[in-house]
């Protein structure tokens, strides 16, 4: 469900741990905030900085990146590679106006359904508190295909 002012959160998660954790949260019927859109990748090592930029370009209020705990990568070292990239990228984005309220990282295993639900709730609350990013988002695409789209309610897609 979508409502005006609801934060838009994009989560890039790995297939083996965090996605399974999210799945567990679902099958365990844990309640968590519904605003997150999950994009499943084979491994956090596959999550390019371009994905994160694209999410902000498309109007995400926050981006979550999550995968297997260090040492648990299904492909041995994908998350280690990724961690190094993000250590730099998050600082660069922070410098240019996308701070840590908008870009978060976590390790969530397949067994951590509760952690996933808690994280999403926590993140959603923080993003709600920070408010919509649209006005301040330096990456945002500000092209209105249809003049009325700019003001219109967000469509579920």
């Amino acid at each position: 469900m979508s409502q005006a002012g609801a934060p838009r959160i994009t989560a890039f998660v790995c297939n083996w741990c965090t996605y399974a954790g999210a799945d567990l949260a679902g099958t365990s019927r844990l309640q968590y905030a519904p605003e997150v859109r999950i994009v499943k990748l084979p491994c956090t090592g596959r999550i390019s900085p371009l994905f994160i930029l694209k999410a902000f370009e498309g109007g995400a209020d926050a981006v979550l990146v999550s995968g297997c705990h260090p040492g648990d990568c299904h492909y041995t070292s994908g998350n280690y590679h990724a961690r190094r990239r993000w250590g730099l990228l998050r600082k660069l984005l922070d410098l240019t106006g996308i701070d840590s309220r908008r870009l978060q990282f976590s390790w969530i295993s397949a067994a951590e359904g509760q952690k996933f639900a808690d994280l999403i709730n926590d993140l959603t609350a923080k993003v709600r508190e920070a408010g919509p990013f649209a006005g301040a988002n330096p990456a945002r695409k500000r092209l209105a295909p249809a003049p009325e789209e700019a003001q219109g309610p967000r469509r579920e897609s």
Binding site: G71, S77, Y80
Partner: peptide, 11 residues
């Protein structure tokens, strides 16, 4: 990469 790389920004 290094297993000891900064991990502090992960929850």
């Amino acid at each position: 990469w290094d297993p000891e790389d900064d991990n502090s920004f992960f929850t």
